[in-house]
């Protein structure tokens, strides 16, 4: 597995300092306060495959995405892409070359394009920065990219506000492909879009993945979208991966109680009337997470051990009940 893996994430952790300002702490006698957004997250992505992280708000999935591309330094752990560490200083030279091969598509297409720039300039920026092409060739390449994502080459002369949300996401995809990226992190790329536009974008992404052999890290809260896009899936809850596995298997036989609950909460569009357990409770405040397994207050199978001890990831599931064979 490790040999074919393009991306390897090991023991990723991220703490955010949420303390009051220094002067307030001094006078109010408060201690520094940290929020652990991501804790001990590990996964691998094989070349040309799609790995999806799915979870609700506060699960830390977007924080993982930002750490993987290097927008956010991890508090601990390491991200290795094609054998080059994103953290260690010794790799800093090769990391600069690596940047060209990593791109990201963001959630909000209204914020991810500079509103004062013409679209052609937005798309050309990676090409120019990495010095891939010069002069006329850049213009030609931008036109090709626009055509590739289903827009017109002349659209490059317009400003982002002249486009709809779906079209802007196409522009963002064109920018991601401009420097021949191999690994693209997609952070909720369709959650701001209408369903029919979402279908267009998801189809486009799949087509482009096949055409260019892209490796994708796909972040989403929508299980059905994840099911449609991913080869492998990691389910996150309060900063930890609770279950990971092959997409089909995970949806067919969810093992972690949280995965089961999440699947049961998805509205039943087939109107099959399948039997579902009602969902209980809400995600606790991550500033003050529950002890042991953070899911235990909502878990029907929780016992004393779950309240005390953090479950280890065994065979793709981090759950005491599964480990002990208590889960149905």
């Amino acid at each position: 597995m490790s040999e074919a893996s393009l991306v390897v994430v090991r023991g990723l952790r991220r703490d955010f300092d949420i303390s009051r300002p220094w002067l307030n702490r001094l006078f109010e006698g408060q201690r520094r306060l940290f929020l652990r957004a991501v804790d001990d997250v590990s996964f691998e992505i094989a070349k040309g495959c799609t790995f999806a992280l799915v979870g609700e708000s506060g699960s830390g999935k977007s924080t993982v995405a930002r750490m993987v591309v290097g927008l956010l330094p991890p508090s601990d752990g390491e991200v290795t892409i094609d054998g080059i560490s994103m953290q260690s200083a010794s790799d800093s030279g090769s990391r600069q070359k690596l940047r060209r091969r990593i791109q990201m598509i963001f959630q909000d297409p209204y914020a991810s394009l500079n509103p004062r720039w013409r679209v052609s300039r937005v798309i050309a920026e990676p090409i120019n920065t990495f010095g891939l092409l010069k002069g006329e060739a850049v213009t030609k390449k931008v036109g090709e990219l626009l055509t590739l994502v289903g827009l017109h080459p002349d659209d490059g002369d317009k400003f982002p506000h002249e486009f709809s949300g779906g079209q802007r996401q196409r522009i963002a995809i064109a920018r991601a492909l401009a420097a021949h990226a191999e690994f693209i992190v997609c952070d909720e790329p369709t959650s701001a879009l209408d369903v029919s536009v979402q279908a267009q974008i998801l189809n486009l992404m799949r087509d482009l993945q096949k055409e260019f052999g892209l490796t994708l890290l796909f972040i989403s809260h929508n299980l059905a979208v994840v099911r449609h896009m991913a080869d492998r899936i990691g389910v996150m809850y309060l900063g930890r991966v609770v279950e990971t596995g092959d997409s089909r298997a995970l949806f067919a036989r969810p093992r972690h109680p949280y995965t089961r609950m999440l699947l049961d909460a998805v509205p039943d569009l087939d109107m099959s009337g399948r039997q579902r357990t009602p969902v209980a409770g809400e995600i606790p405040n991550p500033i003050n997470p529950p002890s042991g397994c953070t899911f235990h207050p909502r878990c029907p199978q929780a016992n004393e051990r779950c309240r005390r001890e953090i479950p280890a990831m065994i065979d793709g599931v981090a759950c005491h009940a599964v480990e002990e064979g208590r889960a149905g």
Partner: peptide, 23 residues
Amino acid sequence: AGLMGAIPTLSSEADRLTQIPGA
């Protein structure tokens, strides 16, 4: 009909979603 086909579901095995062209 297009809208319904455009929604990915947990049970569908389709490789591509139905696509309504345009906006």
